[in-house]
Computed example of a mutant assay.
Amino acid sequence: MNVTFRQLKVFVSITQEGSITAAAEKLFLTKSAVSMALAELERQLGWKMFDRANKQLILNEQGRRLLPLADELLDRSEAIMQLFEGDDATNGNLRIGSSYTIGNHLLPTLLGDFRENTGYLHQSMSLSNSTKTCRMLLDFELDLGFIEAKVSDKRLKVEPWMTDEMVVVCAPSQCPASDKPLELDALEGKSWVLREPGSGTREYFLTEVAANLEEWTEAFELNSTTAIVNSVIAGLGLTVLSRRSVNAAVQDGRLSIVPLKHKMIRQFSLVYNTEKYQSPVFKSFREFAHSWTLGRE
């Protein structure tokens, strides 16, 4: 048996990109070269790694068994290549995924502080909703992620990271008239501007607010927090967002926070795939991320 790193790299790229064409573009190879590398890998192993259906490649059970091992070998080979490029172990590419809220308001500062403290400059950051971040972790496209939604897949290790205050906001002209905090039922019959399915912010609204209302209407569904804020400012409905996301608009009077008796706090989490190889820089960053939160809540 003579399996090569090139064959494994092609295999992992196909699983991540979803097709031979996309993998070829990512690797700067021809489609025929990628097809030949995959065919030779399957010949060497004596098993097909993908099921072929309607011109699509679907990772099968044998492929799922190979993926974590292939990913680890490639990560370790990269670590060997970079071992002597620096003076410490924090070399190698670190791929970080994040929900939009964390990615916009916390992750840049965290990464900046990590770089300053370690001198490590090789990382990539991908922003999406919590569901997509988890999917990318399971597909070995990320090393770790920061999310705000709950996770059910047992392959993902979830570690509490920071807490986040959620608030109901509206245009000042639409704010309920009250000098005292309101019960949630004061929001009955309101129209809401919400994030898309898969978003942790939308999940929070559905479980913590909508579940306590008998009647509510979705006015708009948007995948941008900025678009939601602007829609609410325009009077198109109420919304529930992280206080971090609305502070500026509240401070300059474009938005008002609806005072509620119900304190709304959610958990941010650091999450990673337990089947994926944990490089020295992964361990260093994970430890730094947890210590970084001290005094920042």
Rank of each mutant, 00 (worst) to 15 (best):
Y120R: 04
F84H: 14
S128K: 07
D88N: 14
M136A: 11
N117I: 14
N104T: 10
M81I: 12
Q82L: 12
F84L: 15
E116C: 08
L121A: 11
Q123N: 07
E72C: 08
D75P: 01
N117D: 14
S130P: 03
L106W: 01
S99Y: 05
D88V: 11
L121K: 10
L107A: 02
I102S: 02
Q123T: 08
E72V: 07
D113E: 10
N117V: 15
G103S: 07
F84R: 14
M125Q: 12
K132V: 15
N129A: 05
F114Y: 02
G86C: 12
T101V: 10
T90C: 09
E78W: 03
M81F: 09
T131M: 15
N129D: 11
R76W: 10
L83F: 11
G103W: 01
N93P: 05
S126R: 12
G86K: 09
S128P: 05
L111H: 02
A89W: 07
L107N: 00
E78N: 06
M81D: 11
D113R: 03
L94W: 00
M81A: 14
N104L: 13
C134Q: 05
H122A: 06
F114M: 01
K132N: 12
R135W: 08
S130Q: 04
T109P: 01
D87Q: 15
D71V: 03
L111G: 01
I102L: 12
E85I: 13
T109W: 05
Y120D: 02
D88Q: 10
R76L: 12
S126H: 13
T90V: 12
T118S: 05
T133Y: 04
L110A: 00
N129V: 03
E116N: 10
T109Y: 04
S98P: 04
N117H: 14
Y100V: 11
R135I: 14
D75V: 06
A89I: 13
S99G: 11
N129P: 02
S124F: 08
G92H: 01
L74M: 06
L106H: 03
